[in-house]
Design a protein around this nucleic acid. Structure first.
Length: 424
RNA sequence: GGAGGGGUGGCGGAGUCCGGUUGAACGCACCGGUCUUGAAAACCGGCAGGCCGCAAGGUCUCAUGGGUUCGAAUCCCAUCCCCUCCGCCA
């Protein structure tokens, strides 16, 4: 959510910011300004009358204490009370419209986010060299098949398309990655958390997934809960409505959870294997930090993501996502894309976003120091390891001519003793 | 799921029966000061947040949303959450 005061005081700045996000975002601005004007107009009237009521109520109380007759005053206030009620109803209506409008406006893009849309993201750098294969490499499904590591058919039978059973050594690989990631992050000051994956609407609105991405979310209607698409949601909501001591900042967490996405609108896209599925597990980092430190925290997160891919020996490139392609909450986003030999291109495996105060404003997460005065924090989130996609990258990049998969060295301490290759 | 009890400031905890100078006693924590070589103790002072406003100031908030009333932390209704007991259960 954007700051209404900023919208009011510098509409042109906001207009330009929204233009960079895409035209439809910009059109809301004039409606916002008008609703805000209306709100303040009514507010002044309501407050005037409430002030009067407070003063007279006080007098009535005094009269009663003095055992004097207050009937005349009470009589006079009856109309004022009704009028307040009427005005309050109008105010509520305008505020509801304003809120609805405001919830849909995305965050302003950071000046350093590239101009443009999906095609205009900028490659910052790349690391590693795609491996030259002396044989023709198999994709993850073909590699999995002889060892029965991924069972799409039965996944579909049980749950539908885009669901899978992961089996055997792949399960060991997944948990080795989790353990590797958690230990690395813990050593960097991120507190491990296993989060609730069913959350209330508040958490979805608070993180900016509602209302914009509602169609991507599995909803458990009977209980009014939602399955999260990332542990970013429960991690962000962890400090909802709190005022944090600024001495504790940045407050860093690393969450582990299953993630659920409906993938609405992705029909026909990435239909092979587990690259794009409705359910996957992910290790995610999250940080609450002081507003003037978030840019630096963002780069720190990206460096961690890069370190993970480097440790795993996966060639990748880092991309600065263009303004028009950012999620609703993000002001700036980096993606890391790992090389997939069978697709002969880099595909997104991790991503980290600086949401500035956008989520904090919705969730009411603030900081406060010795000097007093609460202020909104900045929130950042980043993937440490998206298990499915990372395992695809490992399988493809580490395959042998015999159709086996070598285990990355850094993971071996976390695999069953002696398991140096996967798939037997 | 059934029966009770409860949600007040950073924390603890009054106030709710009997509605009115209570945005909220008191204590702890924290910040500033006096004293001290320094610290502790003692003493003095400060210490919620939102909204409107250039400001002065006003207004709102005692889980949330409605209602009653001239006036609600206090009364009524609904919702959410927490605790205890019973039942069920990984």
């Amino acid at each position: 959510m954007l700051d209404l005061k900023l919208i009011r005081s510098d509409p042109e700045l906001v207009r330009e910011g929204l233009r960079r996000r895409g035209a439809q975002a910009e059109s809301a601005l004039d409606r916002l300004l008008e609703l805000d004007r209306q709100r303040r107009e009514i507010l002044v009237e309501v407050e005037e009358r409430r002030g009067l009521r407070n003063v007279v109520s006080e007098q009535i109380a005094q009269f009663k204490r003095d055992k004097m007759d207050a009937t005349a005053k009470i009589e006079a206030m009856r109309d004022v009370g009704d009028e307040i009620k009427r005005l309050e109803a109008g105010l509520k209506e305008v505020e509801a419209l304003l809120e609805e409008e405001l919830l849909q406006v995305p965050n302003l893009a950071d000046p350093t986010a590239p101009e443009g849309g999906e095609e205009d993201s900028v490659v910052l750098h790349q690391w590693g060299t795609p491996r030259e294969f002396a044989f023709s490499p198999l994709d993850h499904l073909d590699l999995a098949a002889p060892h029965d590591l991924i069972d799409m058919e039965r996944g579909a039978r049980t749950s539908g398309s885009r669901f899978a059973y992961l089996k055997g050594d792949l399960v060991f690989l997944q948990f080795a990655l989790v353990q590797f990631a958690l230990q690395k992050l813990a050593s960097k000051g991120f507190r491990p958390v296993v989060v609730p994956v069913l959350v209330r609407d508040e958490a979805m609105y608070g993180t900016g997934f509602f209302p914009t991405d509602m169609q991507q979310v599995y909803r458990v209607e009977a209980d009014g809960l939602n399955l999260v698409g990332t542990s970013e949601v429960p991690l962000a909501a962890l400090h909802m409505d709190e005022i944090l001591d600024e001495a504790e900042l940045p407050l860093r967490y690393v969450g582990y959870s299953s993630c659920f996405r409906r993938e609405a609108g992705a029909a026909g896209k990435d239909t092979r294997g587990i690259f794009r599925v409705h359910q996957f597990d992910k290790v995610e980092m999250f940080s609450f930090c002081a507003p003037d430190r978030s840019a630096e925290e963002h780069d720190f997160m990206r460096s961690i993501e890069e370190e993970v891919l480097q440790d795993l020996g996966l060639p990748y490139r880092a991309v600065n996502i263009a303004a028009g392609d950012l999620g609703a909450s993000a002001a700036k986003k980096y993606d890391l894309e790992a090389w997939l030999p069978t697709q002969q291109r880099y595909r997104e495996v991790t991503s980290c976003s600086n949401c500035t105060d956008y989520q904090a404003r919705r969730l009411k997460v603030r900081g406060k120091g010795e000097k007093g005065g609460a202020y909104l924090l900045h929130t950042l989130n980043g993937t440490v390891v998206a298990l499915g996609r990372t395992m695809i990258a490992i399988m493809e990049n580490y395959q042998t001519e015999e159709g086996l998969i070598a285990a990355p060295l850094v993971l071996r301490p976390f695999l069953p003793a002696g398991m140096n290759t996967l798939g037997r």
